[in-house]
Structure formats: C-alpha cells, structure tokens
Nucleic acid binder design. Sequence first.
DNA 1: GCATTTGATTATGCACTATAACAAATTGCA
DNA 2: TGCAATTTGTTATAGTGCATAATCAAATGC
Lengths: 161, 161
Amino acid sequence: MPRTRPQSPKPTSAPSAELESNVGYMLRRAQLAVFADFVACQSAPRTRPGQYAVLLLIGRHPGLSQSALCDQLSIKRANLVPLLNELKRRGLAIRRPSLTDRRSNCLYLLPAGEKLVARVQKAERIHESRIVQLLGTQRQQQLLTMLEQLSHLRLSAPKAD
Amino acid sequence: MPRTRPQSPKPTSAPSAELESNVGYMLRRAQLAVFADFVACQSAPRTRPGQYAVLLLIGRHPGLSQSALCDQLSIKRANLVPLLNELKRRGLAIRRPSLTDRRSNCLYLLPAGEKLVARVQKAERIHESRIVQLLGTQRQQQLLTMLEQLSHLRLSAPKAD
DNA sequence: GCATTTGATTATGCACTATAACAAATTGCA
DNA sequence: TGCAATTTGTTATAGTGCATAATCAAATGC
C-alpha cells in the first residue's frame, strides 16, 4: 500500500547558517510562520491577516473612508477595491456614499462582519498567547518595539542627510 | 506651478494602535521595510532577496542539487525552476547534470555570479549595519534569536500534543 | 471660473507561494 | 532480479500581495 505520507517530516528545515544572520531573511521566515499560525488558530471559515486588518479597522472606525483606511494600512487605494468587493460579497462590510463628500465612501461593518471580527479576535488571542508562550511576555514586547523601529528604516539616505 | 510633490510626507504612517500589538502585522511591516532597504542599499543592477539567497547558497555549496537547495530555502521545487532560468539567462549560474544521479542537476555559479554575490554582499553589510545602527548590536542579536524561534511556531497543535 | 488635487476605480504587471500532474531515473524490497 | 514506490526536475495553473498608470467625478484653491 503506497499511501502518500501525510507530510514528510521536514519541519521548516533550519536555514543554512549563511542566511540565519540576515535580518531580512529571518523576518520573512518568521512572518510566514506567524501568519500561518494565525490562520491555523482559526476554525471553519478562515480569514487572512489582510482581510482581518481591514475588518478590524472598519469596526474600530465606522464611517472611515477608503483612502483613510489605506493610509492606516499602508496599502494602495487600488488594492483595497477588490478587497472591499470581496467583503461586500461575503456580506461582511459595505460602502455608503459620504454625505459630505460625494467622492468618497463611508465604510461600515455589517452584523456578520461584527461577528466575524469577534470570532477572529478570539483566535488571535490564542495565537498571540502561543507567541508569548514561545518568547515570554517581556521578549515579545521587546520584539514589537524592535519591529516598530525597523518599519521606519525607510531609506534615510545612506549617504548624507 | 503645479509640481506633483515628490512624495507626500506620508512616512509609513504609524499603524493604528489596534494593530501595532499584533506580532504578525508588525512582522509584515518590518519585513517590507527591511527588504526595501536591502534593495535600496545596492547600486546599479539590484538583486532581490530571493535571488540573492539562491546565489549565495549555490556559491557556498557548489554542486548543490535543486531539491537540496529548495529544502534549504523552504521553497517549492516548482518555484525554483523559473528562478534558475532567470539566473542562467543572466549568465550568473548554471545547471549541470549530475554524474551520479541522472535525474538531478548540480548547480554552480558562473564568474559573473561570483562577482555579483560579492557585490551584493558588500551592500548587505551596509544594510545590516544600518539595522544595527537602529537597534544596537545586542538587540539585533536578540531579534535574530526571536525570529528564529518564531519560524518554528509551526502548528504544534493548539489542542493537545 | 479654472487649474489642481483628491477619492475611487479599472487595467495591468510583477513577484512569491502553492498544488497537481508528468516523465525519467532511482530505490527498496519481496 | 523485477516491479512498486519514491525522488527529481519540469510544466501548467491559480491565488495573493504589491505596484503603476490612466480615468472620471467631485472638491478645493486661488
């Protein structure tokens, strides 16, 4: 009986020593693992980190415009459009024309969206607790601080100022 | 005079407080910034982190097979193919049929590949020094350690063991 | 009032990841 | 030894994330 083994025991083979001192490479690896865990901690209808971020922000700031949301998430306006279309299709959020600016839309969660956010948040707490379990609370906080600093790396001109 | 301002002063606007305590989200942000800086630290013909990783490993392990390389990098065999095609097209690396296993190829850097690796490594040192400048040596080391731990998060079964 | 800017959208492209299917070669074992 | 199973590289394909340019309507700034 062949039976394609359920998944070779290849547990994210250690990165070769050449690369494990490269911050960027390790960041990518960690990010993939953490995102996968975030999704894995959910049940039934899984929500991707990106969609979750959108839903969470809309829920926190009802009536937000698409542009404002894009600024918050550092994504391009053009890329938000299909995201919102999908959320609308799933009955999670809606666009409503602004009353004060006829160009822009106000974003709102629908009841199903509220419920989904609550559900994913529960999973997210489990997910984060798994991280704390791995790093400890203090180091997790240090990690967040460092990641925040790194996200400002923005080419501050390697040459002069 | 209109002059489309060179880039609105939107310096990676701070992530909304709702998300900045989310490790996954902050990892993604930091990773994007770090990758961008890695590329920005190079001159002339920029090399992406992915291609660089491939070239570096081939350089360190001449004769490596494609499968072995994929294992090291945790990428799928199918995705390495176009990558290698591109490297061959640019005259940076080649496949040579293995003498001991006629299924597999041995990978080698061409002189141009060697030179490119050396050049990018120089940029990489500058890039990493910019990170150290931001975090300090000790915290950078702590960061690497934590990222390594996180990359092993792999669903260790949230339920039981 | 008219030039400029802004908000949302469409179209498009690139990079990365993932899966399934396949042929040729190798391996394992009965 | 012979045949089933696995491995290697490949093709085809799909989904996701990010980016740019062009467009239209609406708002803003002299």
